[in-house]
Structure formats: C-alpha cells, structure tokens
Design a protein around this nucleic acid. Structure first.
Length: 872
RNA sequence: GGGCGAGUAGCUCAGGGGCAGAGCAUCCGGCUUACAUCCGGAAGGCCAGAGGUUCGAAUCCUCUCUCGCCCA
C-alpha cells in the first residue's frame, strides 16, 4: 500500500463526497431508533456560502453526525429561504443594470424573472453545504415557496386571522423609500449620524412665536399640533393656545403631553402623527388628525403644498431656505442622533402612516415566555435566556405585510366595498363573499406579500409537512436542537417558539445553541463594503473542508464575536496532515495483520495499558464536551490526544516492538495501534468527516456509519499512567540535559540509574522504549553515589547519571540543577505556607489537604536530592 | 438611557475556587526508515486596575478603566 506522505484534501474530498452522494443520509421516521432532529436555519436561496454559514452548519453537522453514530435516527432537515426583500433587491439591482425597474416589467414578468434567478442560483448554496460536508437528509430539501410550505403559510395566516390574532390597520410603520415597502421594527438598523437640529419659529395666533427644535424640518408639513410637557413651568402658558404652521398656515393647537422631554430642544415638540412614533402615540390619545406628507418613493405628496414632488432631502433644504428668508429659522446646531436605516439597502427609513397587516403578539408571546421560564427550552449559553425574555416581555405587534412581489401573497380578498375575506384560496374567498353579499361579486386579492420571517417562523413544522399530520411530525417534532447566531434570536428563534406553541401546542426545539458571529482579524464585522469578507469556499480550496470545520469548532465557544485567523487554518491543516501520517504509519505497519485478531487476552505492554487507559478518558471527556456543545474543548482534547499522546509517545514506543524480533509482542503492538487508530477516526469523524472516512476506507470501515466510541471503565489504568508518567519525565530529563549540554542528539549515551521505585520497570519492561526515546543505553547501578564524567539527573524519584562523552561544561549542569532547585523551593514554600495556615487544615476538604501534604513531601524529597547533587 | 460580551505570554486565544496552559512567533539543536505541514529543547505572564468574600481568587462579588456589541 502506498499512501502519499501529505494529506491532500482536494483529491480526497470530492471522492468521499460522491460516495456520500450515492447513499445519502435519508432518515426513516419509522426505524424505531430514538429520534434526534435539527432543522437548518434556511440560507437565502440565492445566497452563497459565507463564514457565518460555515460556522453554523459545521456545528450542526458535528452534532448530527455524533448523534447518528451514537445510535439515534438523526435527521437534519435542510432547506432554503426565499428571503423576500433580500432576493427582490438583488434582482432589482440586476434589472437596474438594464435600465429597468420592476414596475417596467409588471408583477408577473418580474416574478418570472426572480424564479429564473432562483433556478439559476438556487442550487449553489446546497452544493456548497455539501462541499462543507453537511450530512443533511437532502431528500427532504425544502424551499419556503414550495407549494406545501406555501400552504402552511396560508393555513397559519387564515387561522391567526380567524382567531383575531392577525388584523389590518392604519398604523405608523417603518418605510423604506427605496424598497417602497413597510419594514418591521427588527428590519431597521439604528445608526448614529451627525445631523442638525433646526430651531424653527412657529408664530402664535395671538401674537409672538414659539421656537421648536426638529431634526427633520420637512416633516413639519405634516404637523397637526405642538406639545409641551405639562410639568414644564416655562411653557405652561402655551397650553390651549394655537400656533400657525409656517408655509402652510395650518392652525396648530398646543397640547400637553407627558411624552415631551423638556430637555430636548426648547421643550416644545411639534406633533407630526403620520411621521413620528411618539407623535403618533400622542395624537392617537388626544384624537389629533394625522397628515401624511410622503409618497411611497419618499417624495413629498400633495399635502406638502408648494413642496409637493420634491425628494425628501431636497424638500428639507428648500423648506429651510424658505424659513430663513421669512426670519423663522432661529438657528441650526450640529446634532448627533440615531437614525433608522433599511437593513437590506441601507436607505434611511421614514416612519410613515399606512395601512398594513399586523400580528397581535402579546397573546403569542406569553406562552413563549412561559416555556422558557419552565425550562422546556434551554439556551446555551444560558445568558441568552434573559435577552430572549426581555424582548418578548416588551414585544410590539408585528407588521407582516410587505409592498413587495417576491413572497407569499397575503391570502386576503376584498369585496367591492372593501370588506375583507381571508381564505386559503380564491375559491374559498369567493364562497365567503357569496355568503356575505348573497351574490357573485368581483374580488381582488391583496397586493402585498408576507414578511419572509412569517414563513420562517413556521419552518420547524412546515418542513415536516404541516398542516398534514405526517409521520415526520410525529417522530421528529419537536426537534431537539436549534443552532443559530444571536443576530436572528428575535427575527427567527422567538417567532418559531411562538408559532410552534400556537399551532402544535409544543415547543419547536428543546435546546438552542447560540454561536458567535465571525469577524475579521481586527475584530471588524465582515461586509462587502468593508472588503474584508473571507470566502469559506476559498478556504476549502486551500485547506480543505475538514480544516475549515475544525477551525469553526475551535471558535464556536467565543462570546459574541469569533475572530477569523488564517493561522488557525494553518494549524488545523497541519493537524490533519498529522492524523493522516499517523494513519499512514499504522496502516503500513499493520498491513500484515491477519483479520479477526484482537488484543484482548494478550499480554499488554505498559504503554499499551497506558494508551488504552488514556483513550477511555478522552472518549469520556469528548462525549461530555459534545453533550455540552463545547465543540472547541472536544476538538482541543482530540488534538492533543492524537498529537501529544498517540503520536509523540505511543507510536514511538510501539516502534520498539514493531521493528523488534518478538513476533507476539509485535502483534500486540499492531493490534493496539489499530484499536487506537479506529477509535481516533471515529472520535474525530464529526469534526473531520472527509479525512476520517478516507482513513476508514483503508481499514475497511465506513466510519460515517460507525458507532461513536463509548468509554470502557475497566480499561482505566492508574498504575500504567503512573509508570508512564515517570518514564516520560525521565526521557524528557535526559533530552533536556542533552540539549543544554549541547550534545549530539543522535549520539547514544550510557544512562546509569542508581535508585527509584520504578527503576526495575524502566530497566526491564520499558528498557527498549527508554533506549529508543532517550537515545541511551540504560544500566542499573543501585546506590551508586558518584561517577566520573557524568551528569547527575533526577526524574520523579529516579536518580541517574548520564555518562558524558568527554570534558563537559559542568557549570551548565550545575545551573540546571540550581534552576530546578529554585523552582522546587518556590513551589514548596507556597505549599508549606498553605499547610501552616490553620484555617486551611480546618476548612479545606480533606482530600485537598492530603493531596497538598503529599505534594509537599514529594517536593521535600526532591529538594534533598537536588541539594545532595549540588554538593556532590 | 438600559443590558451584554471581551481584556490571561510578542500575537491569536483555551481555562474559570486548590502548582498559570496551547498554537503561532522567538531562541538553540536535529532531514532519527509516518509526517520538515516534522522532531527535541528553551525562553517568555502582578491573568486590565482597585476593593471585597474565602483557609485559598486568574476564576466568585462590587466598583473603575479600555474595546466591541445589542436594545431603546
């Protein structure tokens, strides 16, 4: 067998991928195995894999592979999201290159164009997920606009409407003048901008004027009142009087409202109910009229009088100039404030009064709060619980209608008099209308579509076929785990909980693992405009998917932000190469191993007992970490076990028997090596599925379908661990002395052991390994006190001399011993101070006291020996 | 304004009441028949600062500073 000495993921991964493609990861809800399920956070159908996806999906795949190997019917439901506004904006930009708008095409042609786009790009993200190694049940791939899922959306809408939880109303919403649609509160990003505060004089009807400060003077065209705080003594006299709106001349009552902040501006607030949330609230309470002055595209409408038709910021300038000319502009001061921007196109949004559909959230939020308080859903890390609860406790109604074309069209039809008929389809609406009017009438469907997140909220059960009562729902709902970033905690997670509880009376998932977002090397958010985006596909091309996955596992434990670091990728690639070479070594050195043999019942070497013992500990802790979703700790544990323990020690020690004369001993070593390799590839498989599957092929194993190792307690062997501990210390000590004395590392030296409780083992069973790893010829001279041309050494309680080839620099040895002594004395002083403290003996657990005493004893003995060496 | 996270070796970060860790970088030495993407050795830290709790604090509590984020 000839295997390349470097692991080449570019050659291996496509091959393994096509193997997986043949069999797939199809789940059987009726297998009778214990189910375990995850639904994917559906990526945008036209999207391309970014680092966030890489992290998110790697973690899901680690869990799903682990559970699958651990005997569960583990089903990962994949799918894509139509991503209403995001996709539509994308296609509109494409159209803009041709100098067209969606309105030029009309609704049907535009939609055809988006579908075309979807057909063209919709599969790339799926292929990319596969390339990352994701073992989704691809036979269950769903898309939020599929007929089945669209039916789920209509079903949910109709039911919520009939329950009074969806209503249509004129309300102040966030409006994006570029997208020309309403946005939910969550789709607005607040950003600090440097603007201006304009101080405008409003003449009073009975003489004089009052000054009002505003950041958006153009909205004054929609003013219908002025307001002051009732407790503000400065302005009390104004209440009940009337001001005159500049430019338009409208009479504005001056009212009192608690909401007015006396500290802001002059303490007099202009009330523009159609364009400001606070003003809207005040106006609603006091019954003030609202005047909308903005068109859908952000230009001033006819209510704006002379400014009608002007773009909003041009209107602002024109208006300010006019005011200045009339002496009504008192001053302009710089002002920093938070302004809302459209999440998608980054245009400044306008609060705008319009007729929209809303979901009444309070009744839905209450159960969603309860299940988390009762622990039916658990957040990991736990601190997200509070964030979730606080949002739900202060929730506001959700504006779900969007003036877009790409999405689920709202299943509402209007009669000639505007009467609303909400139904599953037009036929049903017609029946309702007929029943209502007693005759056939012309119905027209609502033009709007639903917020993308409406369908996403149903995702955990719509992918399983709801509203049908499917086998999938019976078996896999509720799902076990949701893996997602905190950025969509409110958008998605909270809404899924609400909808899951409402429609299935059961939580959609039991645990939510919240992972960080990936940021660039300097800690900056990755974005196209910053130009700091790292493309995971390029990383896969350079390092392989496994290396990327391991890197993702390593950063998964970060708090909010995980810094991308190319060094980490290098490190992971090196590790994979290490695993590959470990496998290569074991495979080539066990090629002659007859099948069917087992190390059990054979006489094991100390190192065999040691590595088997360590293996059990590693299996136990990796499983434990995986159960806690501590992916970084699991990965790190395996990294160090493989590299430090298996490769650096066990493999090197096993070489003595592999290359030795004793055929039986050689067999044993081969068998234990095989066991170690088999276990390691299985343990690693969820993290690095390609490499481990590839190695498995050489072992005639299908690792991806294998069992996750379970610890076997009886193989824990504290005695072997102690023995190997001393062995390692001795080897390290000899190596260190050699290095510090500047001796040729290859030259074999005589090692004379003079005392130590493990001496007979070191010179007996472990002699060959000692000779090989320390490059020495060991011999036994009990009690010997002195030796010419030799360096004294100490490892644990083993004292020894290292015979030197000639005249040596003794000061180097003495300073080494002195350094050791200093360290020992420092540690000892600490321990003794602790032991001398009566509080410690009284209050510390007995175990700790005993352990400390033993350590102190050991250090004292060591100190004595070192002192003797220095003297001698 | 409210809340959250981070601050540990030169760099990137683990750890989270009982002896301060890793990788990279640095320095010294090695192509030793799995791997130079490697092996061996070394050096490097007042665990941001100040108080407190405790027999014992990098770890828990309070405050402060710096950076980042979320919500309003």
């Amino acid at each position: 067998m000839s295997l390349p000495s470097r692991y080449n993921p570019n050659e291996v991964e496509p091959r393994i991928l096509s193997r997986w493609e043949e069999t797939g990861w199809v789940c059987n809800p009726k297998s009778g195995k214990k189910p375990f399920s995850i639904v994917i956070p559906p990526p945008n159908v036209t999207g391309s894999l970014h680092m966030g996806h890489a992290l998110n999906n790697t973690l899901q795949d680690i869990v799903i592979r682990y559970k699958r190997m651990d005997g569960y019917e583990a089903c990962w439901f994949p799918g894509t999201d139509h991503a209403g506004i995001a996709t539509q904006v994308l296609v509109e930009m494409e159209l803009a290159k041709e100098g067209k708008t969606r309105k030029d095409l009309g609704r049907d042609a535009f939609l055809a164009r988006v579908w075309q786009w979807k057909e063209k790009y919709g599969n790339t993200i799926v292929e990319q997920l596969k390339a990352l190694g994701c073992s989704c049940d691809w036979s269950r791939l769903r898309f939020t606009l599929d007929p089945g899922l669209s039916r789920a959306v209509r079903t949910a809408f109709v039911q919520l409407y009939r329950e009074g939880l969806i209503y249509r109303d004129e309300y102040l919403i966030n409006w994006c003048p570029r997208c020309e649609t309403a946005l939910s509160d969550l789709e607005v990003e607040h950003e600090e901008v440097s603007g201006h505060l304009y101080f405008v004089r409003y003449p009073l009807e009975d003489g004089g004027y009052v000054t009002v400060a505003t950041t958006r003077p153009e909205t004054m065209l929609g003013d219908t009142a002025l307001a002051v705080n009732p407790h503000d003594g400065r302005h009390k006299h104004l209440i009940g009087r009337r001001a005159i709106l500049p430019v338009l001349g409208r009479k504005l009552p001056i009212v009192a409202a608690e909401e007015v902040d006396p500290e802001f501006g002059t303490g007099v607030l202009k009330i523009t109910p159609a364009h400001d949330p606070v003003d809207f609230q005040i106006a609603q309470r006091l019954g003030l009229p609202a005047v909308n002055v903005l068109n859908e595209d952000g230009t001033i409408n006819t209510n704006g009088g002379p400014f009608a038709g002007l773009e909003r910021f041009q209107a602002r300038e024109a208006l300010v100039e006019g005011l200045r000319a009339e002496g009504l502009l008192e001053k302009i001061t710089p002002y920093k404030h938070a302004v809302g921007h459209c999440e998608r196109c980054h245009t400044m949004v306008e609060p705008r009064l319009s007729l929209q559909w809303f979901v009444r959230m309070k009744p839905l939020a209450e159960p969603a709060i309860r299940v988390v308080q009762e622990g039916k859903i658990r957040f990991i890390p736990e601190r997200w619980t509070k964030v979730y609860l606080e949002w739900l406790e202060n929730i506001r109604d959700w504006c779900i209608s969007r003036q877009l074309w790409w999405g689920h069209r709202i299943p509402a039809w209007y009669g000639p008099d505007g009467k609303i008929f909400v139904a599953m389809d037009e036929e049903e609406a017609r029946k309702l209308a007929h029943a209502h009017y007693g005759e056939e009438v012309v119905l027209c469907q609502d033009e709007d579509v639903l917020d993308t997140w409406f369908s996403s909220a149903l995702w955990p059960f719509s992918v399983m076929g709801w509203p049908e009562e499917t086998e999938e729902l019976r078996t896999f709902y509720p799902t076990d785990l949701l893996v997602t970033g905190f950025d969509i905690l409110f958008f998605w997670v909270a809404r899924m909980v609400m909808m899951g509880l409402h429609f299935l009376n059961e939580v959609p998932f039991r645990e939510v693992f919240i992972h960080p977002v990936i940021v660039d090397e300097r800690g900056q958010k990755m974005s196209k405009s910053r130009g700091n985006v790292v493309d995971p596909l390029e990383l896969i091309a350079t390092y392989g998917a496994d290396a990327l996955r391991l890197a993702m596992a390593h950063v998964s434990g970060k708090g909010r932000a995980a810094r991308y670091s190319p060094v980490l990728l290098d490190e992971m690639r090196d590790f994979l190469n290490k695993v590959w070479n470990m496998a290569r070594f074991i495979l080539t050195n066990t090629a002659d191993l007859p099948p069917g043999l087992n190390w059990r019942g054979r006489s094991l070497a100390w190192e065999d007992r040691w590595i088997l013992s360590r293996l059990q500990a590693v299996i136990a802790s990796v499983r434990n970490y995986l159960e806690r979703y501590a992916f970084h700790l699991a990965a790190e544990t395996l990294y160090h076990f493989v590299w430090d323990e298996v490769c650096d020690w066990y493999l090197e020690m096993a070489k003595v028997r592999l290359y030795g004369e004793d055929a039986e001993a050689r067999r044993t070593a081969q068998l234990v090596l095989r066991t170690a390799l088999t276990h390691v590839v299985h343990l690693l498989h969820p993290f690095t599925p390609f490499l481990t599957e590839e190695i498995g092929e050489h072992l005639d194993l299908r690792v991806s379908r294998g069992s996750y190792p379970k610890p076997e307690e009886y193989l824990r062997d504290p005695e072997a661990e102690r023995v190997l501990g001393v062995f390692q210390e001795l080897v390290r000590e000899v190596r260190a002395m050699r290095a510090e004395l500047g001796l040729d590392p290859a030259e074999e030296l005589e090692l004379v052991v003079t005392s130590g409780s493990q001496a007979s083992l070191l010179l007996g069973d472990l002699r060959g390994a000692l000779a090989r790893l320390a490059r020495v010829q060991p011999c036994w001279a009990p009690g010997r006190e002195n030796m010419e041309n030799a360096a004294r050494g100490l490892a644990g309680d083993v004292t020894f001399f290292l015979r030197l080839p000639g005249e040596m620099d003794w000061s180097a040895i003495r300073s080494r011993i002195q350094r050791n002594l200093n360290k020992v004395e420092g540690e000892l002083a600490g321990l003794e101070a602790r032991l001398a403290n009566p509080g410690f003996r009284e209050k510390a657990p007995e175990e700790v006291v005993k352990q400390t005493e033993a350590q102190a004893r050991e250090l004292r003995a060591r100190r004595t020996r070192l002192l003797r060496f220095l003297a001698g």
